[in-house]
Design a protein around this nucleic acid. Structure first.
Lengths: 208, 208, 208, 208
DNA sequence: TATGAATGAGCCTTCATTCAT
DNA sequence: CATGAATGAAGGCTCATTCAT
């Protein structure tokens, strides 16, 4: 029983490695099978379609981020400090190990932009994303009620937009850092930290 | 002679149309040839490798943005107002016609992340990007010297980072708006405008 | 011990069901195993090669026809009447339940036309066929000796040919009736009965 | 222009050769390409789906029979004699070169019994079949009007059924003659001729 | 020069059959 | 014994790229 799950994980991580390095379209099922040291047919037994394993890898990538946010939320800090931690976590995406995850998500979003993928598969990914969304949302609410975040309603939207934008941009930077020949200038970590502080100070301003 | 250039443009725009709708990898050279009403062989005569026409389309997409920034720079406004215009232009990427271009760039950046592309080709794209980078850089400098932007040196970096981040995120949103089933929440235009104003007010703060 | 035979029969009938609906080549061993509610490995334990179970199904299909002819032969009728019954039985193939069997034979004959099958396996099928051949042969002889069939020697051959041909054609019609979009016109039952009567009247003609 | 048709014919005949020897399912597109001395891609250029070339081969097989029947119809004989010729032509299927065609049709009918094939493709085959059906139908009518065939209306149906059955059985025999190990006894040519004569004499009997 | 035709390498997927529990 | 898991070989089909007209 356990061996099956083991094997499955093994294939998923092999796929992740390959997807990370070569992208979804340039990784063949045979490649994955080889990397995982199994036969192709075995791979197909676990993931009947290529999209299936792609989804699985993506879901894992999202879920890998989950505990970190969860932990932030459950920490004994004020809301604004938790936001600080969230932003810091985002920044971590660039340099740390789960940069790979961030980058994978980046690639996936482009992948589905052009290749129609089954709705129910997408639904799984959406669900994983929402989980994180809810956590951040909760943190903002928390910060408002403990007074550490000072925003009126309209500012609330703004706050989520800013956070969203920060995450979006940083995730994308995580992709850039992998490029052998960077085309777009990627901000350094210190610069991002400065931006983070600007955002935080904004969030603490009394509502105008 | 002129006919040749005409033809070339025709192929590029046909390719752009197709790339925009189906992505780089899902568009075949045959597709492009058909869309451009030329033979495949002709297409290959003009663009010996598929990457060649991809680069060309991307370059065109970047250059298409160029005049707008150029025009902003040459306008008779103070630096801070020009920055405002730049940010507004970015926001325009989501809804306006050159959303297609923005999206194409987005896709391209991912494309080259996984497929090794010849250096000299990339160089051309970089050059196009730098052109825009220089314009923005000039605007910031201008704003500083006319006093409308108040930043010390370290803040200067911050300013470019913020602008960069804004552009990066918005470009990515331009891709999302194409997705039939959005997976990630995309901020509304009004929300982006609010963020823009926050940034602008930040840029005008006296350096601490 | 008995359970084994039970199991075996179960697999064979599962296979028959599937072969009838999808043909030999489009039915996988896994399909059969599932339909029979056993593991694939078990199926292979009983039938080490796919051809083995095919042969078994075909044999069963032939043998299923056997009792009907046997019963005709043993009935208390004159030879010509038995021939009548045999022809009627053939006609039954089109509409009745063992149309499936008839059709399976049809498919099998084509199957072996292209896929080399082991001789000893074929021998088993031949043996089953011969059994029926012998019965019909006996009936014809009977009819001649009781005077209800009037044929000289050379006509005897003719008689078997006609019967054979009738059977061949009708069996094939049994296949056609399954086709969703009939391509070849299939005679109606009543028409076949008319032909049957023509044949019967021919067989009763005094030898010329 | 002509070369294209040449090439196309070449592929079709290569396919026919292979289909005849190995059946539709056991012949791969690669096999056909090799036999025709072209690349697979070329084969697919002419016949985008495997079914397409199957249909083409089948159509050719049917059409190959066409001139013979047409010629019989246009000959200067009485109806009954033309029927004679038609039956003789059928018998020819067993021994002559177009036995291959007859056999192919046989195989095709089984093929479509299990594998769903696109309607419009089937329609083409049906059309080809109908052409022959119409000729035979016309001959029967001709025979009736010139008095050489004596049948009342109900017998007319019978006549077509008998002819149909004769053709059906003989076509199937054409398959059997290819089997390395005959499973079902195939009538000899002389026997079929006898049956033919029986049918002819029946058709000339005055209607009862 | 412009083009349709030709093509091999490669991809996703299936399946009969063997292993290991 | 019974079984699910594992697998390589093979099949249909696509596509960037080259030829030949």
């Amino acid at each position: 029983m356990n061996k099956k799950i083991e094997r499955r994980k093994n294939m998923i991580s092999a796929a992740k490695r390959l997807f990370t390095e070569h992208g979804f379209e340039n990784t063949t099922m045979q490649n994955i099978a080889d990397e995982a040291h199994v036969g192709v047919a075995t791979l197909f037994r676990y993931f009947p379609k290529k999209d299936d394993i792609i989804i699985e890898v993506v879901k894992a990538a999202i879920e890998q981020q989950f505990p970190r946010f969860q932990q932030i939320k459950e920490s004994n800090k004020r809301g604004i400090e938790k936001i600080d931690d969230v932003l810091t976590a985002y920044i971590g995406f660039i340099s740390e190990e789960n940069r790979e995850s961030a980058m994978l998500l980046e690639a996936f979003e482009l992948y589905i932009a052009f290749i129609p993928i089954e709705k129910n598969l997408l639904a799984e990914v959406e669900k994983a994303y929402e989980k994180i969304g809810r956590i951040i949302s909760a943190i903002v609410r928390e910060g408002k009620s403990d007074g550490s975040i000072k925003l009126t309603l309209s500012h609330e939207i703004l706050s989520s937009t800013i956070l969203n934008m920060f995450g979006t941009a940083v995730k994308k930077y995580s992709l850039y850092t992998l490029l052998p020949d960077v085309i777009v200038p990627v901000p350094k970590k210190e610069e991002l930290i400065m931006v983070k502080n600007v955002l935080l100070s904004y969030l603490q301003q009394p509502a105008k």
